[in-house]
Every structure is written in structure tokens, then in C-alpha cells.
Amino acid sequence: MSMLNACLLLSSALFCLGLAAALVRSNAILVLLGIELMLNAANLNFIAFWRFGPDAGHSAGVMFVLFSIAVAAAEAAVGLALVIAISRHQRSIRLQEATRLKG
């Protein structure tokens, strides 16, 4: 197994952990953290291909990760602001209880 395959396996393991967190946990903050972990796993792939891929050294991989990190920061800020707003409106951050808009 080549190093590239090992890196991809690692990133899929991280992705699944993040997915499990986002699906199973009911705390809004932990769901957000799971999504961040999935984003990180995807970034890891870019660097793995940049380092070991057939077109190694092409700067697009690094650039993509940089932009992805910046967008992840924006996502975290908005997401946590939402969590704070939810907790203020219904005194809990359990996602199952955020059903006010349900018809």
C-alpha cells in the first residue's frame, strides 16, 4: 500500500468520525465540531495529493486548503452565533428541541 493510500484511509476514518458525531450527538456545538472535523478530513486529502499525487508540487492543493481553512473559520463563527441565538430563544442547545418552525 502506498503512502497516498494510507493518507486517504486516515482521512476517510476522520471523515466518518466527524459524520458519526454530526449524526449521533444531540448537542448543537458537538454537531458543529463534527462538521469541522469532516472539513479537516477533506483538507487532509488535498495535502496528501499535493505531496504524493501524480502531479505533486502543483500549488493548487495548498491554495485550496488555505481557502478552505478561511471558509471554515467563517462557518464556525456563523454556526456558533446560531447556537448562541438558539440557546437564548429556547434555553437549550439540544437540536431535537429546535422544532419551533415545524408545521
Binding site: M1, S2, L9, R51, G53, P54
Partner: peptide, 15 residues
Amino acid sequence: MLRSHFPTATGEAPK
């Protein structure tokens, strides 16, 4: 991941 084979570059680590 386990079954597929990716072409990998051989040579120096990119800088």
C-alpha cells in the same frame, strides 16, 4: 481506498 490504485509521483518531496 484499499482496492483502488492511485498513480503516485516518484521523486523529491515538493517544496
